[in-house]
Design a protein around this nucleic acid. Structure first.
Lengths: 235, 235
DNA sequence: TAGTGGTCTAGACCACGAA
DNA sequence: TCGTGGTCTAGACCACTAG
């Protein structure tokens, strides 16, 4: 395996990228061109490219080609105030697109999680978030808007953290976090415009009010290469 | 993509696994057999299998075949006492193998992280950990043994958390955690007996003493399908 | 319309694991 | 020794994107 042909090709591009000869966003030559240059079939070339993708060094845009991955953003759910804020602070440009907002009845699983009756109306929010024009995560949020009267009339492509703070004098404090490294489910991959089966990171976040009620349940589906999580635990 | 042939095959096995018709540990038919049965070439079959692997539903053992993945263990680094403990509690059998233990000089990066002089001797520990006979993670630990006199003479395939508690009356409290979803580096994939490029989860944990000195730096390389992280943040 | 990646065929040889 | 997955060849057609 260490002497396979795709491995040589993988190292060749991997080194160029890590030495920053190829900068973030650079487009690689097409699979056919690479194949000609290195006298390899496309399948072998793709094996190398897919491994580089798994490493997070390159990514593809649907039928547009392969590109060098920009550095990951550092995500600290414990210090969570706002996606916009921490992305900006790290020198990137954030953008949020609201795909859907509606009031819907809580299904059984959600109701149990939220400690409410099944079919109680909750506010559902479906958003796509970008870093430097690149879609990196899909968010599905369920809000118990009993605690947040009038929130459904706000502009909900903004930061919820900031909205909670400014309008309701609430801050994220207690939360349960769950992370799972797995491929993106079809709906998320679709929304992100990438192939099903793409590596992803699934985050589930439950935010509590100060008296331990569930305020919000948040499901995030991230591209695996777009971020790195950092948490400081202090007693 | 949703109507591709490998996608049908992927769903076929995916459904069987999720409905538990195929139980954890079951061996799938060989790639050639599946190909014959579904009239597909091996490349197409492998595409489906690799996607199922990315989902975490199946895994391979080097040239032995494909197997149904057991459920993930839940890992709570904040409540970290012992790998052995939480794995056992969840009904699995843990096992730890010490691959290497030696005293070595800290390199520049580590020294800076630990707040010590470069080349200060530190205790290096290299371990492989198993769940139900399956190797799931590689650990590389660097210990500032100034705080833990005599630790190098202990049996270090046991739980460090328990050892610290019993022998030194220390408990893990403050720590910095970092998670990155990425493919396993070659050394870790090798030690786990899986192909380079396999999806993984990289954890870095810095444990502090009660007076904010770095006690231990821990690098963990997990199979991506072996665990799910859960953290409760309380103010 | 030309070029890209996405999917697929029908083979082949090799290295490693199990018996 | 035989069966397995790992790697690779030399093509093909399709769906989508960009210009």
């Amino acid at each position: 395996m260490l002497n396979s042909q795709y491995h040589h090709l993988q190292r060749y591009f991997g080194d160029l990228i890590q030495q920053k000869v190829l900068e973030a966003g650079t487009k690689l030559p097409s699979e056919r061109e690479i194949g000609e240059q290195f006298k390899l079939t496309r399948i072998t070339v793709r094996q190398a490219l897919q491994n580089l993708e798994a490493e997070g060094l390159i990514y593809r845009q649907n039928r547009r080609g392969w590109f060098v991955t920009p550095p990951p953003v550092i995500y600290d759910p414990a210090n969570y105030l706002s996606f916009n804020l921490y992305v900006t602070e790290q020198g990137f440009i954030p953008h949020t697109e609201k795909l859907l907002q509606q009031i819907e009845p809580a299904n059984e699983e959600l109701a149990q999680l939220m400690g409410i009756e099944t079919n109680t109306p909750v506010l559902f929010l479906h958003r796509r978030r970008y870093i430097d024009q690149r879609p990196v995560l899909i968010e599905k949020i369920y809000i118990n808007f009993k605690f947040l009267p009038g929130i459904e009339k706000e502009e909900l492509s903004q930061s919820l953290g900031q909205l909670l703070k400014q309008k309701y004098q609430l801050e994220y404090r207690d939360m349960d976090l769950s992370f799972k490294s797995t491929s993106l489910p079809a709906h998320a991959a679709n929304d992100l415009g990438i192939s099903t089966g793409h590596a992803g990171l699934h985050i589930e976040r439950i935010n509590y009010t100060s008296d331990k009620k569930v305020l919000e349940v948040d499901y995030e589906f991230w591209r695996h290469d777009a971020m790195s999580i950092r948490i400081a635990l202090r007693d």
